[in-house]
Design a binder for these strands. Structure first.
Lengths: 351, 351
DNA sequence: CTGAAAGCGCTTACAG
DNA sequence: CTGAAAGCGCTTACAG
């Protein structure tokens, strides 16, 4: 098999046209044509196909994009900061994996923007300089102008894991309310009454929704809401660790903790152990996410599972549907979470 | 702050030039100039900068690329298949995270190619259609033409975690030989003599190098190499599980296993337990990688740590260095691994 | 059924 | 010190 190429430049449409002794636009019509190519004679088409094959012709994506066609690449933008975790950020990994898979189904590639959203002046440029057809924003916060700016500039977008008031950008997320209720009710059903909650960053809708559902569940069960059982913090492990310590230092410490994420749950377990207490006998802990290691953790984590890669897939498929002009769907696409009961929770101990 | 824009199209250089009442090329020189812009009068430059600011000018990356400038985006290509694991593939996640971080240091974005390399005909196109400046190939196999094709077409590339004979493409990897020796010698030092090895896919240099280092270490210690202790397989978990079962069924089963990866080690532990045997008392197991969950696994895994995100960072930095014309370095960039002793290994039991 | 021409938004000789 | 022009490789009216 000989390698057909002249120098190291890829063959252009013009090269193909010349070789096929045909005009440029006809070659374009046949090879890359949006225009129906039925009105080109069969003989001509064959000549063109053959020339293209011989020259290993592949359309130049950049030229095509400049001429107004889609690039078939999706952007992924982190709203807050790109999680750099030494590998621990299973959330982002799973979601991105799903996004890439979903994009792949339609032949789209995915570009990861290195810089998180900052503000319109410094961040909008790369989103509209022709490289991407649309963008998936991960973790937009209520106080960020990222989604509104995207709307202002009519950049096709999908919000992943974040619902922003007044935004018309479609959302793909787990049903946080159901998930948090599942977690809290599980604890209640195990006989717990002193149930604390470790919420994530309050700028994130997933954190505030989980927090509200937690208190609603408590209320439903006739358990009084105690502000000291809901210390504010972030999704950072260190925040989970510190807050758990503080909870344990309370005059009346909780017997159970609903952690806003598995990372927080793991941090909480470590904090509990650092006080020579045990999980679940002294304190029960539920997480949220069901990251891969939850199952292998010691003890295996009881947690609310969200199918992160499916959410990622759904996000890119939705974005692609929008790009193909099928209109922007109303509302949110919420995935049902499942409670996975493992060994980090137990019935409240008597006494 | 009013949003300066007309319609929804980004301002072009021409728009800026008109507004600044200046020629297009002068605006280009000042704003995006490769040409020294010192020969433009200060007054003119200020006018141009101001117009650009007012119009929120951001150069169109696609046009720029078509005109021959770099796109400042790096491609990531999987040689074999893109790992889709439901989140378990900590290897790829960590490496990609590093690549993105390394790229970010110089303002490069990263595009993940959805399709793994197949063959020259179907895979070369997207790599030379103008979207990327260079590519990082993950896990090239000896029998693949991916690296040689990249060389043939002069596409700047770096091979991550794979050394291919006769390839001139620079390699970034952990020192697999040192790592495997560390693992094997650790087992030998614990008194084990019946030491098995679960190699990964033999088309991958990291698997074959680890395997050779394992047997070299055995030989060094005067332990005879037993082919039945080195069952061929892949890096898939299922392969680790099955092979471990077979190992345990041997008339003289091993007392220790050096698994070619942490995933394989985890599978091996599960296989051992499925036989009602215990780790490490009945059989000791060492992994390779030190993925995040290794530390939390029960028992915490003894393993060879490779700093995957550092390797990813190094790969993108090396590629960027090549792109900036600093020449292609000779040989490989090998990172020193570290043995992390945790609780999945123990001294061989008497008897 | 087929092709010449303009245009996408830049960069880069080249000419004043 | 500054600008007109050509060219990167496509697509898309438009004209034959």
């Amino acid at each position: 098999m000989t390698i057909a190429r002249s120098g190291n430049k890829a063959a252009s449409l013009q090269d193909v046209a010349s070789r096929a002794k045909i005009g440029l636009s006809t070659a374009s019509t046949v090879l890359n044509g949006a225009r129906s190519n039925t009105r080109v004679s069969e003989a001509t088409r064959q000549r063109i196909f053959e020339a293209a094959r011989e020259l290993r012709y592949h359309p130049n994506a950049v030229a095509r994009a400049l001429a107004g066609r889609p690039t078939k690449t999706l952007g992924v933008l982190f709203a807050l900061r790109r999680p750099t975790s030494g590998g621990r950020n299973a959330f982002a990994s799973a979601v991105i994996e799903g996004i890439v898979d979903g994009a792949a189904l339609d032949g789209y590639n995915t570009t990861l923007f290195a810089d998180p959203w900052k503000d319109i002046t410094s961040s909008i440029g790369p989103l509209r300089d022709g490289r991407i057809d649309g963008v998936i924003v991960i973790g937009a916060t209520e106080d960020s102008d990222v989604l509104s700016t995207l709307s202002d500039f009519s950049i096709p977008a999908v919000s992943l894991s974040a619902t922003i008031a007044d935004s018309t950008i479609p959302v793909v997320d787990v049903d946080n309310e159901v998930g948090a209720r599942l977690a809290t009710e599980h604890l209640i059903n195990m006989g717990h009454r002193r149930i604390a909650h470790l919420p994530g960053d309050s700028r994130l809708s997933n954190a505030t929704v989980r927090r509200s559902a937690y208190s609603a569940s408590l209320e439903n069960a006739g358990i009084a809401y105690r502000p000291d059982y809901v210390p504010a913090g972030t999704y950072e492990e260190s925040s989970g660790f510190t807050r758990t310590l503080a909870l344990l230092d309370l005059p009346e410490p909780p017997t159970a903790i609903f952690a806003g994420s598995d990372d927080l749950a793991i941090a909480a377990i470590q904090a509990v152990r650092s006080r020579s207490l045990r999980v679940p006998s002294d304190v029960s802990i539920v997480g949220f996410d069901d990251i891969p290691m939850s199952k292998y953790f010691d003890p295996p984590l009881t947690t609310v599972q969200q199918r992160l890669s499916d959410i990622g897939i759904a996000a890119s498929r939705l974005l692609i549907r929008i790009l193909s002009g099928e209109g922007i769907p109303e509302g949110s696409l919420l995935f049902e979470p499942t409670l996975i009961v493992r060994n980090s929770t137990a019935r409240v101990s008597q006494g």
